[in-house]
Amino acid sequence: MKHVSLLTLALVLSVWLLPASVRAQSQETFEAEAAARRATLTGFTRARSSMTLVAEESGRVEKVMADVGDTLGQDGLFAQLDTTFIRLDLRENRAEQERLKSDFEYYRKEMNRYKQLVKSKNAAQSTLDSNVRAHQGALQQLRGKQIEERVLMERMKRFSLIGPAGWKVVTRYIEPGEWVTKGEKVAELGNYEALLVPYALTGAEFRALKEQGENITLRLTDLNIPVQARIERVSPGFDPQSRKINVDLQISQGDFEFRGGLRTELVLELPDPGGAVLVPATALVKAYEEYFLMTPEGERVRVMLLGSGRNNLRRVSSPEVHAGDRFMVKP
Results as ranks from 00 to 15, higher is better:
M153W: 03
L278Q: 07
N215A: 15
A32D: 05
G183M: 08
G237Q: 10
R310Q: 15
T8F: 11
A134Y: 06
L284Q: 09
G324D: 07
D89N: 14
Y106C: 02
D272Q: 01
E62H: 08
A134D: 13
Y107I: 05
L189S: 10
G69Y: 08
A36D: 09
K286M: 13
R233P: 00
Y291W: 15
R207L: 13
A204V: 15
A281P: 01
M1S: 15
G275C: 06
T83H: 02
V321L: 01
Y107H: 12
E57I: 06
V301G: 05
R314Q: 13
A95I: 01
T217W: 04
G163N: 00
F104I: 00
R172N: 02
T45R: 10
L100H: 04
A79L: 13
R60L: 04
N112T: 12
S252A: 15
A208F: 07
G137N: 14
G213M: 07
P296D: 07
V22P: 00
L128P: 03
E148G: 09
G309W: 11
R23Q: 13
L270M: 04
L90I: 11
S50E: 12
R48G: 05
V301T: 10
G203R: 14
E31D: 05
L90Y: 01
M111I: 02
L313C: 05
A200K: 11
P273Q: 03
V169G: 00
E92W: 01
N312A: 14
V285I: 14
D103T: 09
R150W: 08
E178G: 09
T181P: 01
S49N: 10
A200E: 14
V277Q: 04
V247I: 15
I245C: 06
T52R: 04
E188Q: 14
P296T: 06
P198V: 08
F256N: 08
S242P: 13
A287C: 01
N311F: 10
G183I: 07
V329Y: 07
E299V: 12
V227P: 00
E148F: 06
A10L: 13
L189T: 10
V321K: 04
V151H: 12
R99G: 04
V321Y: 00
A187D: 10
G261Y: 09
I174E: 03
R243N: 14
V234L: 10
Q25D: 13
Q80A: 13
S308E: 15
V267G: 01
E149W: 02
R233C: 02
T8H: 03
P273D: 05
L17Q: 14
A55S: 14
D129F: 03
V279I: 06
V4Y: 15
Q116E: 12
Q253I: 08
E289H: 14
W16P: 00
E232Q: 14
M51D: 01
E175N: 12
I174Q: 05
E211Q: 15
L18S: 04
E232I: 06
T45M: 08
L223V: 03
T295F: 03
Q125D: 09
R99A: 10
L306N: 10
